[in-house]
């Protein structure tokens, strides 16, 4: 993670403020920064989205390809995550600097999605044991200002919502080989159901309280954070603790409850927004990267 140098005085200032439920930019402890989401920004991909959370900018592109299913689960497709911390975000990420962070992020994503409820993987199957859809999720960090996990997960949810998988039929050959036939119409596609896709909420422990969506400065003041992925029903699919400090079991419980609450509240407006954007259809003004 990118680091900022914070002086002692600033640290005290931030700590005291958070103690009184007042953060530097005027938010409450459980408030998110201004978030902007746009989907279908990259035309080459089958689904894409760009999320701006304060100054953090994340771009996600999803490409669908036909591949062989995993041997253990022949009737399911799968997702493949790759997080690229580009040097765009901070100079620390130059060369292989961002690799460690990238790996960490993708591992967390794998764990978050590693249950059968988040995404219906069976719908990605084309013919059991032979062909299935593989969704390659590529995340690109463009700007880094704290709270990467949240932004990435929201972006992934939006991108999955936007993904259009082409409709194929498998026709059987007499020899037993399968021929894949693609439909002619570019509009003929399958959409994914992203209701159960979890969102990740990061809670940072600053002093005795915890904050959601910490900026880099606030991060510098915290000793430990709890990362949890929450579905729209409030189910927690995975949790992780990062950071050098220790957490009291009671605080963990508190933070978990807070995380569940926040996470649950995040999904509904997000879905509403995505559907609204979709309904604009052709008339949608593409903003892209120009603003």
């Amino acid at each position: 993670m990118a680091t900022v140098q914070v002086s002692e005085a600033e640290k005290v200032y931030i700590l005291h403020g958070i103690r009184d439920d007042l953060r530097v930019d005027g938010r409450g402890c459980e408030d998110y920064r201004h978030m902007e989401i746009e989907t279908d920004v990259v035309s080459n991909t089958d689904g894409s989205s760009k999320v701006t959370l304060g100054h953090t900018v994340v771009l996600v592109g999803i490409k669908t390809e036909i591949g062989k299913p995993r041997p253990m689960v022949p009737d399911e497709g799968y997702l493949d995550f790759f997080v690229d911390c580009s040097a765009n975000a901070t100079p620390e990420f130059e060369g292989r600097g961002g690799e460690e962070l990238g790996t960490e992020l993708s591992n967390t994503l794998y764990r978050a999605f590693n249950n059968k409820h988040s995404l219906d993987l069976k719908s990605l199957c084309i013919s059991p044991g032979e062909h299935c859809w593989v969704l390659y999720v590529d995340v690109l960090l463009l700007q880094c200002d704290g709270n990467l996990y949240d932004a990435i997960s929201i972006a992934i949810k939006a991108a999955l919502f936007n993904t259009k998988i082409p409709r194929v039929h498998i026709s059987a050959d007499d020899e037993g080989g399968r021929e894949i036939e693609l439909s002619d119409d570019p509009y003929d596609c399958v959409r994914l159901n992203v209701e159960n896709v979890p969102c990740i909420v990061t809670l940072c422990k600053v002093g005795h309280r915890h904050v959601v969506d910490a900026t880099l400065q606030e991060k510098a003041c915290s000793v430990a954070s709890l990362i949890m992925s929450v579905t729209h029903r409030g189910t927690v699919t995975c949790t992780r603790k990062v950071g050098g400090g220790s957490l009291d079991p009671e605080s963990i419980f508190e933070m978990t409850e807070a995380g569940k609450r926040v996470g649950k509240a995040l999904h509904a407006p997000l879905m509403k927004l995505l559907q609204q954007e979709e309904s604009l259809g052709r008339k949608k003004q593409k903003v892209g990267f120009l603003s």
């Binding site: 035309s43 080459n44 991909t45 089958d46 490409k63 669908t64 390809e65 036909i66 062909h131 082409p166 194929v168 894949i180 693609l182 570019p186």
Partner: peptide, 15 residues
């Protein structure tokens, strides 16, 4: 934009 089938049996989106 359209989707095309590759020779190896994959599917690729052409823009």
């Amino acid at each position: 934009t359209f989707v095309k089938k590759t020779r190896s049996g994959g599917v690729v989106k052409i823009v």
